[in-house]
Design a protein around this nucleic acid. Sequence first.
RNA 1: AGGCCCGUAGCUCAGCUGGUUAGAGCGCUACGUUGACAUCGUAGAGGUCAGCGGUUCAAGUCCGCUCGGGCCUACCA
Length: 915
Amino acid sequence: MSDLGRDAVSSSQELDKRFDPRAYERAWQRRWAESGIFRAEAPSTRPPFCNMIPPPNVTGKLHVGHALQTALEDLLTRWRRMSGDNALWLPGTDHAGISTQLMVERQLAAEGTDRRTLGRERFVERMWAWKRQYHANIREQLDLLGASCDWSRERFTLDAGLSAAVREAFVRLHGEGLIYRGEYLVNWSPLLGTAISDLEVETKTVKGKLYYIAYPLEESPGGGEAGEVVVATTRPETMLGDTAIAFHPDDERYRHLLGKAAVLPLVGRRLPFVADAAVEPEFGTGLVKLTPFHDPNDFEMARRHGLPGVSVIDQQGRMTAEAGAEFAGLDRFEARAKVVERLRQEGLLRKVEDHVHNVGHSQRSGEPVEPLVSMQWFCDMSGMAPRALAAQREGRLRLIPESWEKTWEHWLENIKPWCISRQLWWGHQIPAWYTEDGRCFVARNVEEAAAAAGTDRLTQDPDVLDTWFSSGLWPFSTLGWPQRTVDYDTFYPTSVLITGYDILFFWVARMVMLGLHFTGEAPFAAVHLTGLVRDASGVKMSKTRGNVLDPIELVEEYGADAVRFTLTSLDIPGRDVPLNLEQLAGYRAFGNKIWNAARFALGRVGEARVEAALDPHGLAAPERWILSRLSRLAADVDSRFRAYRFDEACNRLYHFFWGDLCDWYIELAKPALSGDAPRPRTGEVLLGVLDRSLRLLHPVMPFLTEEVWQRLPGHEAIHPETICLAPYPGREESWESAEVEADMEVLMHVVTRVRGLRSEMGLPPKARLSLHLSAPDAAGAAAAGDGAAAPADARAHFLAEHQHLIRFLCRVEAVSFGPPGDGPQAAARRDLVDGVDIALAVLAADRGGLDTAERERLTRELEKLAGEIDRAERRLADADFLAKAPPAVVAGGRTRLAELRERQKRIRAILDGGA
RNA sequence: AGGCCCGUAGCUCAGCUGGUUAGAGCGCUACGUUGACAUCGUAGAGGUCAGCGGUUCAAGUCCGCUCGGGCCUACCA
């Protein structure tokens, strides 16, 4: 395949004293890419694992949210690849219609031109040039993050294959009557000059006014006095398009108006009264003016009552000729002021109130959306939604975390037609052609349309499709659909999708619906929804706030591995991701720790080599302990990965490496490695543990682990070339021993307590100490504890056997064993931990008195103990507790109480004696 | 209006199916350059787990309510 493993990236075989991710990250990414090790097989006999990148927009650079998703997707892919799966992570980008077009239009504006001047063809060329440039940036950024994508399968939503898939999907849906064209009220963005879907409308709470306007009643035929009615509105300019007035059918105040009419001020149109339950009697005056063509509610009501509508606002947000000569051409907000002014002149403005209400804004361009009637293409989702719901309910599609299920259900149960046409130039042009006499033919291409139309004098529909239409096909269009390709057969349906919850409806739901519709299967078995990345204080990142962090700058400063580890460990289900720099620095320090632990090991393991198998027989306790811990770690990591709890997996990896391996095992190994107290195969175990730790860490920290692993003598026995393809370590039951772990735990607790005593006594650094240990404890609690714990004398034996380790770790001059009374009488301090009696003696010359600070501390300790003893006693005196709690819990309580009492006694003795 | 999430140490957050003494990282304090690491080591201070009530022998952990914060969905013009 390649010469990947032949020599490490840096020429020297030894690890540099300085840890610097920049020295190797880029180089490894390059080597991996060149070697082709991330290319998936098709067909393959290995189990498939596939995840599709949520295609980033080709609008520019990746943000931290992308980095989070990349870290998780790469983690899963690397983990499954090492576990032997045929892993495919398919990369690609999205043409992102509106956003990309806006970027290029901004560029054109800076050059003093615009797209209309350029013309459609040249504009689209320009768009492609942009795409090529930014696409390269995105590839580069994914590389820097260590993404192990299969670039040979890269896709772009506008490339030929995907475009064919889009046309196929459109034609089929149209044939099934699910895509149709019609004139309806849509959300219109005057600034963008296009219709947008419901999802692209953002509701904002704004302070506005509520205008009360008097509408004179039509004079009755008999010539009786007419009077007036008052309606309330937030948008007076729309009155020019009113065609009726409505009230609630039960509203006694207005019932008599049924069959009558009012006269629209300024216009003179006759407005009939209608009764409709949608009217809220409590709001305003209980009378609603109906403007069917500029308000969704009114549109519905007008339809129910067979009322016409008048378009008074055009696609630029200006008043139309139908609004009357006085207003035609005015901007909608100018028109508002003018209408109000005119009403005031006419004496018809009764009242103006401040009013806080919700107004739909265009998500991309920010201005208030204008509901208006226009000819658009729609996709009817009402048949697809129930299938998507069923897939989730029946477990064919898992949402992780599950808390999203209700939201998912709510949206799908209230699905509305999807407006899929956009009045833009960048995107998939709608595959519909019109004859000169206006007939419409939907087809895969113009030839097909011409054949159907019987003429080639055809014009293609100028509109393009909503970006989300093509991305909705992503999981299968990228694999060659509608062709039945080998890739499709090998990888579809895919394994998992990782994306942000903000596009659950935009993208995930549509992929599921379209996937089920076209392929009969949910496009992925699980969706892991990540939170939104926020800044350190939990505030959403935004350019205007200036709190945006660029993932690539973070990689430069902290290294990709630290960025990945940080983001991964912050992926807590159902929570957003607060990113702070201290944390990044902390995980970079973790990298440093790994680096230095490896340096230590490489310098000390002698002739040992990494072995594929490690036999625990004949090993001493510290070696058996670390192997036991390692096996449990591997089991934990596996279960946490499977549960999508990457945060927990990271925490366990971190604490194993730093705590178990560095803080304890390496320290325990030092005396053995330096020849002071040799033990069997210490070097082999240290190297073996390091090898497996690196492999376990690799999916999270690919660069560092590869760089270090390549230096381990004998690593070729695990994989000849790269850690990326080395087997992922699993549980090793023969390594596990609860007994050894329990014994070692006592030893470690004793060591920690002795260090504590030493520090509490405020001794000079060079103070010479001797330690006397005894077990069973003098309290004679007779509590040998539960079955798992060793009998006390065996425990003493174990400690005695490992006294050289205790001496080394506690840095005491001498350790002795025996009944408590045998200890040095000059014992300055005594304590009890895990049933082991500790007596620490100091040479008189090194010892000062019991100072005030220590006296205070001990007094506080005594108070705390008293409280705990009290609680434990009361609990053990409770008959209900004794009767109902499991025996193990009761026994545990007794042991603990005995130990608490004993500690209390000792501390009292110290306070009395040390005076 | 409906739904979801959150309120645990100074900060950012863990705490799985309820079980002894509530954890981590960072920050803080004291001490320490022993031959992997000062991007370090050892020890330490710091929490009435938002509040109230309930279930239970036992509740950050389960249930209800209240308060506070965030988000999503929604056609009161």
